[in-house]
Amino acid sequence: GSPGIQSFLPPGWEMRIAPNGRPFFIDHNTKTTTWEDPRLK
């Protein structure tokens, strides 16, 4: 199987799917959430 997208996120980050189907990202380091992919910064 191919590695999940989770493995490509920075340490402490998690990806979830919102009720509307959009992915969002949780930064457990700062306890914040964002719509922006942290890998694109």
Rank of each mutant, 00 (worst) to 15 (best):
G1E: 12
S2A: 13
S2G: 14
P3W: 05
P3I: 13
G4D: 15
G4K: 13
G4Q: 13
I5G: 13
I5S: 14
Q6I: 13
Q6L: 07
S7G: 15
F8S: 15
F8W: 14
L9H: 01
L9Y: 03
L9P: 01
L9D: 01
P10A: 04
P10E: 04
P10Q: 03
P10L: 06
P10M: 04
P10T: 02
P11Q: 08
P11T: 07
G12M: 05
G12A: 03
W13R: 00
E14I: 05
M15N: 00
M15C: 14
M15T: 04
M15Q: 07
R16V: 12
R16H: 08
I17A: 04
I17K: 06
I17F: 12
I17S: 05
I17E: 05
A18L: 09
A18G: 11
A18N: 07
P19M: 08
P19R: 12
N20A: 02
N20K: 02
N20E: 03
G21Q: 03
G21E: 04
G21N: 05
R22K: 14
R22F: 11
R22N: 09
R22Y: 11
R22L: 13
R22M: 11
P23K: 10
P23L: 09
P23Y: 12
P23D: 07
P23F: 10
P23I: 13
F24K: 07
F25G: 00
F25I: 00
F25W: 13
I26Q: 03
I26H: 05
I26K: 03
I26Y: 14
D27I: 01
D27T: 00
D27E: 04
D27S: 02
H28L: 10
H28M: 09
H28A: 06
H28P: 05
N29Y: 09
N29P: 02
N29M: 09
T30Q: 07
T30N: 10
T30A: 07
K31I: 05
K31F: 07
K31C: 15
K31H: 14
T32I: 09
T32E: 08
T33C: 15
T33V: 15
T34W: 09
T34H: 11
T34A: 04
T34R: 04
W35R: 04
W35Y: 09
W35V: 05
E36K: 09
E36D: 13
E36F: 12
E36G: 05
E36A: 07
E36Q: 11
E36C: 15
D37N: 01
P38G: 01
P38W: 00
P38E: 01
P38Q: 02
R39Q: 03
R39H: 05
R39E: 02
R39C: 08
R39F: 05
R39M: 06
L40H: 09
L40G: 12
L40A: 11
L40F: 11
L40T: 12
K41T: 15
